[in-house]
Design a protein around this nucleic acid. Sequence first.
DNA 1: GCTGTATATGTCAGTGACTGTCAAGATGGT
DNA 2: ACCATCTTGACAGTCACTGACATATACAGC
Lengths: 209, 209
Amino acid sequence: MSSQTSSLRDRTRRAVQKEIADAAHALFVERGYEETKIDDIAAAVGMSQRSVFRYFETKEELVIGKFDFAAAAMLAIVRDRPMEEAVWVSLRRVFDEMVAPCDDPGQRPAAVSILSVVFGTPALFAAYLQKMHQLQEAIVEALLERANAAGRPYAGDDPAPRALTAAAFGCLVAAQHSWLAGGTTKTFAQALDQAMAAVRSPQVPPRTG
Amino acid sequence: MSSQTSSLRDRTRRAVQKEIADAAHALFVERGYEETKIDDIAAAVGMSQRSVFRYFETKEELVIGKFDFAAAAMLAIVRDRPMEEAVWVSLRRVFDEMVAPCDDPGQRPAAVSILSVVFGTPALFAAYLQKMHQLQEAIVEALLERANAAGRPYAGDDPAPRALTAAAFGCLVAAQHSWLAGGTTKTFAQALDQAMAAVRSPQVPPRTG
DNA sequence: GCTGTATATGTCAGTGACTGTCAAGATGGT
DNA sequence: ACCATCTTGACAGTCACTGACATATACAGC
């Protein structure tokens, strides 16, 4: 019952998890998500089907589980941003966690292939939207706490924080869609900034043609 | 091969569909979605499991298929709104199709029970988000066509229409969530108006020149 | 009425994601 | 070396969903 932050067993577990996810990812890109059976993934890593499900609750988690890492970092960002900062700006900073892998030359190919599979597979996309919604709820919670700490709490039934966060996530997904559809020519940061500016332009709207 | 808008067979098919959906709905509310098997629904309407799947592609469609009706009406609204109207306002009018059942005393109990099941069942909620996203895409398409018809088309890569629509749908879902969580005390129209106002509060008409 | 064609339905077998269970094996601490 | 704990494979089972085939029912023309 050692409560180490990272025991040996924990580390090996993470390693095996990564190995399975990588093998699955490769197969998904190669043959497609639906066409790849759990047995194929199990065979690729030399395990039984049952053991794959001991590391991932569902097939979808093999792909969208990658966003769980970002989730923790995003919540930390909400808390660390200056309390006076406008919510919309803080949310944009939160999304930097999603932007980074897409615009970093090293991680970009992997990020694009993941997003392509997600956006190209209805079942996966539904799971992705759900995960974003969970994340959204957690961020709303963090925003409420931040407002409390700042001494200006929201009214109990004020829909503003939830609505703003939902709108921002809408922009995030819309930006991902546009960015992928446009052949990922510009940076994802640009696509996201444009989308978010279209909904809530800063004080002075930039020249609109 | 009669191409009537509503042949006898079409009508009986709709009737059977409604009968199945109603039976399923009752069982879902009574025992819960996951606990209700397709066989239970089939037995309730005196059919085989196979026949249920001839009327509904998936178990989820038994619930969220109800939104397909609204979808067609919503697209019509986009097209019928004055072309000068701000997109955000048109989207609010589009959502009237979702508001009506929630605020009409006659349909309200049914609407609330459906939304409760959807928001209370992760698998269903994921499917719901996906369906809203499909609807969203269709509405973006309609907005683009409307802009074309008005003589001021969007630039090919302008993320504004998609971002605005995504943000509006975010508000819709957030409002539904708040409305349900708050015990449906106020009207849903109020909840939605508040949410959408929080994102684009005083709709300042863009100074184009 | 009779017949041919299209549609609706039941039955059966099968796939694939996922779960519970149990026994055997590997591991880590003492 | 020993024991508690974790890990694994094997097996059987559930449930959503699909394809195939046979049968029944409906609707047409004659």
